[in-house]
């Protein structure tokens, strides 16, 4: 049993007990809040269907391999090993896809190899950018996303580069 797996249950218990101590009808209060959640998710379904289908087509068509080929000279220029590049391409677009790639990297090279460690840091420090943008902007009906996606991608690229540099600095 490690500490990390205790955080979630602890948070839940803490919120409920704190509410009880402050003399709140915790269960009634919970039900009232939960009702509001349903509507949001229902309004998200069309947005997510559109995006998930497009991403699923994108990965199935082999476009990811093409991107990997096109971008690998750029990525190796900044010190990202070739084996990790598919993870970098997938992690902004597909959460489940990038987890699969991550697992295959740590199983092929070993979790304690340089590639495995870089992949771990990248998987630990990025979120599925397109999914997050679609969910957050979709839930309030924003049509013009402004500079959100370029900025988020800048953040992703910075995290890939700093992941490779940090692992190379601390573990070799």
């Amino acid at each position: 049993m490690n500490f990390a797996s205790l955080i979630l249950p602890l948070t839940v218990v803490f919120i409920v007990v704190f509410g009880f101590v402050k003399k709140i009808d915790v269960f009634d209060c919970f039900i009232n809040g939960a009702k509001q959640g349903i509507e949001t998710v229902v309004s998200l379904l069309p947005v997510l269907t559109g995006l998930v289908v497009a991403i699923s087509m994108f990965t199935a068509s082999g476009a990811v391999n093409l991107c990997t080929k096109l971008l690998s000279p750029l990525f190796s220029l900044v010190g990202i090993p070739e084996e990790v590049i598919p993870l970098c391409i997938l992690s902004p677009v597909s959460g489940s896809g990038s987890l699969t790639v991550f697992e295959s990297i740590i199983n092929t090279f070993g979790p304690d190899s340089v590639e495995g460690r870089i992949a771990s840091v990248i998987a630990g420090s990025t979120e599925t950018t397109f999914y997050a943008v679609a969910v957050y902007l979709g839930s309030v009906g924003i049509k013009k996303s402004g500079a959100v996606i370029p900025c988020a991608l800048i953040g992703d690229i910075v995290s890939f580069v700093s992941a490779s540099l940090a692992v190379k600095y601390f573990f070799t």
Partner: peptide
């Protein structure tokens, strides 16, 4: 998760957490 956390969030809000 949306229902669950909206519910918990409601408790956290009402209790001043």
């Amino acid at each position: 998760v949306m229902c669950f956390w909206s519910g918990l969030m409601n408790i956290a809000e009402k209790s001043g957490l």
